[in-house]
């Protein structure tokens, strides 16, 4: 069977579901962040698959490029927030962080 659009879309669906699983079940904030990266990458894979097979052409690639840029900004800010949480609580478990200041 020829490799087509649907194959890539199914891989991205699996990646998306794994990211959701990480976000729901993981306790450590950094692993939640990794789940987020998986989800963003699944979206990126969709964009590029449609750029190749769905007629989006260069527009799809540019959308994926901006997703990468925003992911970089987001992970920098999120990690600095996590470092701040660690300074105040000495752990980064998202289910035990309950107050905004100590």
């Amino acid at each position: 069977m020829e490799i087509g659009l649907t194959h890539y879309l199914i891989v991205s669906a699996i990646l998306f579901a794994m990211g959701i699983f990480a976000i729901i079940t993981r306790k450590n904030a950094i692993l939640v962040l990794m789940g987020l990266e998986l989800i963003l990458n699944a979206a990126n894979l969709n964009f590029i698959a449609f750029a190749r097979y769905g007629g989006l052409n260069v527009n799809g690639e540019i959308a994926a490029l901006f997703v990468i840029i925003i992911a970089a900004a987001e992970s920098a800010v999120a990690l600095s927030i996590i470092l701040n949480i660690y300074q105040n609580y000495h752990h980064v478990n998202v289910d035990e962080v309950e107050t905004l200041k100590d």
């Binding site: 904030a29 950094i30 962040l33 990794m34 990266e37 992970s75 990690l79 996590i82 470092l83």
Partner: peptide, 9 residues
């Protein structure tokens, strides 16, 4: 960056 975060926290 993520690995730095892991090591710092």
């Amino acid at each position: 960056l993520i690995i730095f975060g892991v090591m710092l926290t």
